[in-house]
């Protein structure tokens, strides 16, 4: 089954492809941008008989959301932790 996402590009496509592909119930997942001047991204999913492409898509999205949340939390924790070189006024160089 192919999903066509409007206004999306490699930013979402590649990460989502990776996340869906990680699911062991998925036989194949790939994405393409048919034409560079058309803001459209197609993502194709083929699954085993035990599940459906829609379910897998939903799980892929949810997994990626969870992963991003982990990254956000890790980043916030690291910023508040403050264990790094910090200089408010310094402008490079």
């Amino acid at each position: 089954m192919t999903f066509s996402l409007k206004d999306e590009d490699h930013t979402l496509g590649n990460a989502l492809r990776y996340m869906i592909m990680k699911n062991p119930e998925v036989d194949y997942c790939g994405y393409s941008i048919p034409h560079p001047s058309e803001a459209k991204m197609n993502i194709r999913v083929q699954t085993t008989d035990r599940t459906s492409a829609i379910e897998v898509m939903d799980k892929g999205l949810q997994d990626l959301i969870d992963l991003c949340t982990v990254v956000v939390d890790a980043f916030k924790a690291e910023v508040s932790n403050g264990d790094f070189e910090y200089d408010e006024d310094a402008v490079w160089p």
Partner: peptide, 24 residues
């Protein structure tokens, strides 16, 4: 995934993102 900030200045931040995929 985890993040280690190495440097944070007024106009720049440098960090290491680990345990995640290239696509992410």
């Amino acid at each position: 995934p985890s993040i280690t900030i190495q440097e944070l200045k007024k106009d720049r931040i440098s960090f290491i993102l680990t345990e995640t995929d290239l696509s992410v």
